[in-house]
Design a protein around this nucleic acid. Structure first.
Lengths: 183, 183
DNA sequence: ACCTGAACACCGTTCAAGT
DNA sequence: ACCTGAACACCGTTCAAGT
């Protein structure tokens, strides 16, 4: 005899992310997530393998918040859009965001974001054999900065100062790319 | 009546770091650290405030592994020495290293490392008012890369590929600095 | 002064039982 | 098929007691 399904994996991950945003990463317990869903902790195990799987799912969810590409935009604007959105995501989800740097870049959402950067680099004129390397280097710069900002490494600096830092970083990213474009 | 002192804070932090290097961050429990020291878990509380303080101490310890400055070296070589040593530290302590990006940059060891970069930027000819910004930007690049490498974001890539990525990043760092040096 | 034993609240996870 | 109750091993932390 089937029961009405109260929750699914997506609801579990959404509740976990809300909990992390509200109370920090260490407040994300099976009990707290379950309470948010009006269910017992044991009910979660039908939808996630264990707590590690739950956390992986939450981190993956972060990348789905990156908007799709705008093919009409210049490569500079495409990259700026991705960078800005990553920075905004980090600010919305400061306790989860740093985990992005610790996860293998092989999940579907992470591939999607990466392919978007590949596209921008190609239309900038970067030779095909250099595209993957440049993607790794510049995504490390942007992810590292957004994670630093979100996790409080720069907590003593004002938003204005950090915006200036980010502008400097963006200039370095563009210069790195242009160094590989034959003129 | 005094007892012989079996452990001190430094021994606790050293044992914690060993435990993290051997079994990963989640294996660092008060019980595991205490066992390594031949003591009960409760004994640790005389030397660290709580587990957060213990972890902070371990992360801080990481930065003390950065060697001091060599005043005879060029600014390029000075920065390369710091970058190389950070990368080596990340490889020695992969599970703890990523926490560096999440800690406020205000601890003594972190100030020491920062001042060393300040010195190199000054001798490169970077104007004084630009020195702090450039330090934040380039340390973010290097820390972000070392953390990515250590934590397995790039685990599918060989050491040779990652060395190439690092060389590209180092070139970007030098270019970023030179952009701010009047010629 | 420093460490231990006992105790507590909390955590992730399992398994059989209920609908 | 999906959720719950009971149970377990483990975790961080406290406090009074021992030397």
């Amino acid at each position: 005899m089937a029961r009405p399904q109260l929750i699914d994996r997506d609801a579990v991950l959404a509740a976990s992310l809300e909990q992390a945003d509200t109370g920090g990463l260490e407040s994300v317990t099976m009990a707290a997530v379950a309470r948010r869903l009006g269910v017992t902790p044991m009910a979660l195990y039908r939808h996630v393998e264990d707590k590690d799987d739950l956390l992986d799912g939450v981190v993956e969810r972060l990348l789905t918040e990156v908007p799709g590409p705008d093919p009409a935009a210049s490569w500079e604007d495409q990259l700026a859009a991705i960078g800005d959105s990553l920075r905004a995501i980090a600010r919305r989800h400061p306790s989860v965001f740093p985990l992005l740097l610790q996860l293998p870049a092989t999940t579907p959402a992470s591939r999607a974001a990466r392919d978007q950067v590949y596209g921008a680099l190609r239309s900038a004129g970067v030779p095909e054999e250099t595209v993957p390397r440049l993607e790794r280097v510049i995504s490390t710069m942007v992810l590292g900065f957004a994670a630093s900002e979100a996790s409080g490494r720069f907590r003593q600096h004002s938003r204005r100062v950090l915006d200036g830092d980010y502008a400097e970083l963006a200039t370095s990213v563009r210069a790195t790319i242009e160094r590989h474009v034959a003129t």
